[in-house]
Amino acid sequence: MDAGTLAMPRRALGPPSRDVAPAVSNTRIAMLVVIAGETMLFAGLVGMYLVFRLSRPWPPPDLPRLPLALTTVNTFVLLASAWPMTRALRATRRVAPRTVTRGVALTALLGALFLAVQGAEWVRLLHHGLTLGGSMYGATFYVLIGCHGAHVLIALGWVAVMAALLARRPLTPRRRAVLEMCGMYWYFVCALWVFLFPLVYLY
């Protein structure tokens, strides 16, 4: 026993508490792994697109051009949908259930609008002769943008279910974690479009 121990009386400290929340929750890590996998899927598709895009005249002269103005507006709609989701996620910390429900519902609404405009655009392109099997231009466009559309559809379904659940039931910690994952996925599909739109429509 040394002198310091006698000089300073101290309270015995117990073992560190296990209730301390981890720096990054397991749900968040799981979602990051899913998003990493999805990103690799899109990386493969973009790799395929780059091969065709750079190896031949693009777009082919006899095929219709993609509607740039409408898609630009639609891009803003999708990006705007991230804002109510951010508000909803912030509101979960303040425990403001009405703001959470409203934010999630608005996100779903804007996402649905984005998909509806995309669908209308596709129908118009099909009428103009840009089909999946008709040319490599059409095939790469529909596969790449269609894959993103499918992801938006999945995310939209998730957001809509969350909006319906939050409107009826209280915001529990478990539901909050699910909403956080849902928000991460929604941000992912928005960020993906920020990359895909210039690549396919502008480049």
């Binding site: 990386a43 973009v46 790799g47 780059l50 091969v51 065709f52 895009r53 750079l54 190896s55």
Partner: peptide
């Protein structure tokens, strides 16, 4: 070849 190179680099 150039297209493949860019694609491989990206991937």
């Amino acid at each position: 070849t150039r297209a493949f190179s860019w694609s491989i680099l990206f991937l």
